[in-house]
Design a protein around this nucleic acid. Structure first.
Lengths: 135, 135
DNA sequence: ATGGGTGCAAAGTGTTTGCAAGTAT
DNA sequence: ATACTTGCAAACACTTTGCACCCAT
């Protein structure tokens, strides 16, 4: 079972690459759909899965919705609890934590995923002004 | 809008408390159903949400399925990529990471969620023997 | 009594899949 | 030619909701 390079697959990959805001599957569908109004949801989902398998993109599991991004080094994420904007955190991936988890649990640990939750500068201002309800 | 204490709500809370393996919503439904075969799925979901709001239980977002557990201190989780068993990691919550994320990003960070991925001792053995396909 | 809670079934989400036709290799 | 891919629609899994009735306060 070898992967082929199809127009649709390239469109999906391009769409993920074109965004730097960790789009959801649905956002990618919308973007791709703007270029090719025949492509189906099933195809987009199928290709996101294939591209994740091949390591060309990263599937980021987050509260609220899953997101995708172009593969890079392992890194952590930060999501705004109010507007759900996601950004990468420029702190190096800490492999020592994995070692520690191995020692403490006896599991064979491959990796970890670290997600910070907070408020982005914009929402922070809005909250301070309006004392709105969050989370 | 003040919460009431109903039989169904207590059953749901008891079911979460009775388990120490991070049950999914459906597992809780099954457990509660064993005690009261009239309770509906909607009620279980509604109560899980209420109990999460009030802080009586914790909603843990994980790859594959969401899980619930009785609230405790903030702590990290470890999930087996093969059998999806979840366990708590006895490493103290590292607040310093939140500080660092604040410095690096300008977000107001409340907390983080840290999930390790690996193989539990059981699956590890099985994999080593059979060289099965994982992830 | 009154407003939150319940059971039920229907409706939502978000994602996967069976199928026949299409296409990259 | 072969078998991976596609579009479509139906199917899924999981969760939420509208409604009329019920019950904790």
């Amino acid at each position: 079972m070898k992967q082929r390079s199809t127009r649709q697959r390239r469109l999906v990959l391009d769409a993920v690459r074109a965004r730097c805001d960790h789009p959801s599957a649905d956002q990618i569908y919308t973007d791709v759909r703007a270029v090719d109004d025949k492509i189906s949801r099933g195809t987009v989902y199928r290709n996101l899965n294939v591209l994740e398998q091949t390591g060309e993109i990263l599937h980021v599991k987050l509260p609220v919705t899953d997101r995708y991004e172009v593969r890079a080094d392992r890194h952590d994420h930060l999501i705004c609890s109010r507007c759900h904007t996601v950004c990468d955190v420029p702190i190096p991936y800490d492999g020592a934590m994995d070692e520690r988890a191995i020692e403490e649990t006896g599991y064979l640990v491959f990796r970890h995923r670290l997600v910070f939750e907070g408020l982005c500068p914009d929402c922070r201002k809005k909250i301070e002004k309006a004392d709105l309800h969050v989370e």
